[in-house]
Nucleic acid binder design. Structure first.
Lengths: 241, 241
DNA sequence: GCATGTATGTACGCTATCAAACATATAAGC
DNA sequence: GCTTATATGTTTGATAGCGTACATACATGC
């Protein structure tokens, strides 16, 4: 029977999918820490000494351009891990990771993740499959950035984020949403206004609530469904090993 | 001393980086095949029975939307491999791979690549690092799609492609370039016209030549340099093992 | 209650890109 | 040579999103 602590670890989908023996081995080194809004988890080109398994926090992977413009390439929550470079071999990545919605995460030393990866068990398979899912999210974001309107992208972002929070409320200002989408704040005001007057969402000073998820799903571009389906296909929802 | 055939295998940077023993083991199964223009190497969601190490051909990874619009997320040439799903664990990906510039590639059965990957030697390390480099290219494409103008994106695409061909001439019509960039053909006509009248490139019915590479590099957005630097950092140029 | 900072709303002109239609030029086959 | 298909060039108008400026609304601290 799993301990209370193990149950808490289960709040993250990747940890939950690990076999009990592996989880038991890692659990002494998994430290539950607070993830405050705006905290920069990792900067472009700098090594990650720790990796993070979010539970009820949301982390954006951003690419920041020289002129200060930026765009989110992926959103990571309780389905994933922030920090693939320790096991992929590069040591660093060119992305920046920022906490978009405060909460908690389990932190692990990058070196320990790397060691666990190279023990070549289920954890290795899982992390590789996760990396492929992440790659799908990034690719679909690239296409969505090219072809879809801001309103649809906002819908995609709302759905992906609420999925990863397991909540229908997000603590984000329109300005911070504009930053992750890589558009102007005014465009978000406009798109969010449309969605609100149509009754799909409500928002008020930094709180956005998806009140009619079905209709948001009806309005979002295909990109959301493709990413979601690929995560479902590649990652087990429960422990399977 | 390497055989003539081994020298030919060296035309691909990944194969070249492998230790001689690994290359010798794989070489009986590596079949040099023609890559005709427009050939679809892999479709979204379909398994790859073979993977490809291009030598003088170029393959685009495309995402095709339901309405037929598409965008390239990465361009693969003699620096890489087409087909990471066999070893990443997903079996399939949601991308489509199309030959953009005809030439040759070494083909290998996906299962053999998978087996070689799980022998856990230098090839595994190399493929993981390559996957990370590919991920960087895709991410940077996402940001570039968001923030940069078509002319800069065209420059990026020209430089990335000619790097991967080891040639300054590309066999691509403006229409096919528009398809991979995910923009209209007229925009490519305009951008390419500007570059030609400035003396950076010349083109004529499906042949584009970069005549003044330095000045194209001066006009391209930072995205090209970042991707190039990351490939150089992550992948050895010569055999290192 | 009032001042201040922050979040959101609105309006203006500007530009890149889209959409569609059509004109011209080159290559390839007969 | 001529025909046809394909590649490139040009025009016109529409629109999404940008940049800037400013107005309003709400929250917090005093």
């Amino acid at each position: 029977m799993p301990s209370a602590e193990a149950l808490k670890l289960h709040e993250n989908r990747l940890l939950r999918a690990l076999p009990a023996t592996e989880l038991t081995r890692l659990s002494p080194y998994l430290k539950r820490i607070k993830m405050p809004l705006g905290q920069v988890i990792c900067e472009s080109g700098k090594p990650m000494y720790h990796v993070y398994f979010p539970t009820n926090s949301i982390v954006s992977l951003l690419y920041v351009l020289e002129n200060g413009e930026s765009a989110e390439i992926a959103v990571i929550g309780n389905e994933g891990i922030v920090g693939i470079s320790p096991f992929m071999g590069g040591g660093t990545t060119t992305s920046t990771a920022v906490v978009q919605s405060s909460g908690y995460a389990y932190r692990l030393e990058g070196q320990l993740l790397k060691d666990a990866f190279w023990r070549a068990g289920p954890l290795q398979l899982l992390l590789l499959r996760y990396t492929q899912a992440l790659l799908t999210q990034i690719s679909q974001t690239a296409v969505c950035n090219r072809h879809h309107r801001v309103e649809q992208q906002l819908c995609r972002w709302l759905l992906l984020s609420t999925d990863r929070l397991s909540s229908n409320e997000l603590s984000m200002t329109q300005d911070s949403i504009a930053n992750v989408l890589g558009v102007r704040r005014e465009c978000v005001t406009l798109a969010a206004g449309n969605l609100q007057s149509a009754g799909l969402i409500t928002y008020k000073r930094g709180k956005i609530t998806v009140v009619d998820r079905r209709r948001v799903e009806a309005r979002v571009c295909e990109c959301y469904r493709i990413v979601r389906a690929e995560f479902d296909r590649l990652l087990p929802k429960q422990q399977v090993f």
